[in-house]
């Protein structure tokens, strides 16, 4: 373990219970800048729960999680600041059905990152090109396939230029182009 690079995500002795069900049992993990970590485990083993607790979508019962120097589960932490820097791609994608593909990507860029419409559009276009859905930018997600929706969700997360990115996607759906 090198000390020269900085641990961007530190997960330390984390426990999470759903009632009596122990979803996370003393989980510790350091993730360094630039590192790619794949968490593998059987269905229901707590992968999603762990990722969701990295940006406090789930509260943890013990331990701590530090992202980019912020203690995520400290009530005093401005969680919005943490979330801006943690890209999240959900298992069920959760694209915004009332927004076009383009606006799915542009929304948080303009509202949260305060980018101009022009800047946001440029970034969105680039990312949509990368994930290969340039022909559907003005479509609503309802008309997209599951895989296409997933790619929109990935592009949406990356458009924020987050410092880290979590994806709870089953790998079999991710067929890179």
């Amino acid at each position: 373990m090198s000390t020269s690079s900085k641990a961007i995500v530190r997960i330390q002795n984390v426990y999470k219970f759903f009632g009596t069900l122990k979803a996370l049992d003393n989980v510790s993990l350091d993730i360094y800048d630039g590192e790619k970590v794949v968490i593998i485990g059987p269905s229901g083993s707590g992968k999603s729960t762990l990722l969701r607790s990295i940006n406090r979508l789930e509260k943890i019962d013990a331990g701590q999680i530090i992202v980019d120097g912020y203690s995520v589960h400290d009530e005093k932490t401005d969680i919005n600041k943490v979330r801006e820097e943690v890209g999240m791609v959900f298992q069920s994608f959760n694209v915004f059905p009332h927004k076009t593909v383009f606006d799915n990507l542009n929304l948080a860029q303009t509202v949260v990152r305060k980018r101009s419409k022009g800047d946001a559009t440029k970034i969105s276009m680039e990312l949509l090109k990368k994930v290969g859905i340039t022909d559907k930018v003005d479509q609503y997600p309802g008309k997209l396939s599951g895989g296409q929706q997933q790619r929109v969700a990935i592009a949406r997360a990356l458009a924020m230029k987050p410092k880290s990115c979590c994806s709870t996607s089953p790998h079999r759906r991710l067929i890179p182009k």
Binding site: L57, N80, R83, E85, M88, F90, N94, A108, V112, A153
Partner: peptide, 23 residues
Amino acid sequence: IPRGQMEAARSLGMSYQQAMIHV
């Protein structure tokens, strides 16, 4: 509205109010 919509909006760094208004 499915809970995931609020979660997705918040995960992008939106405040509760922003998520309500835009999503």
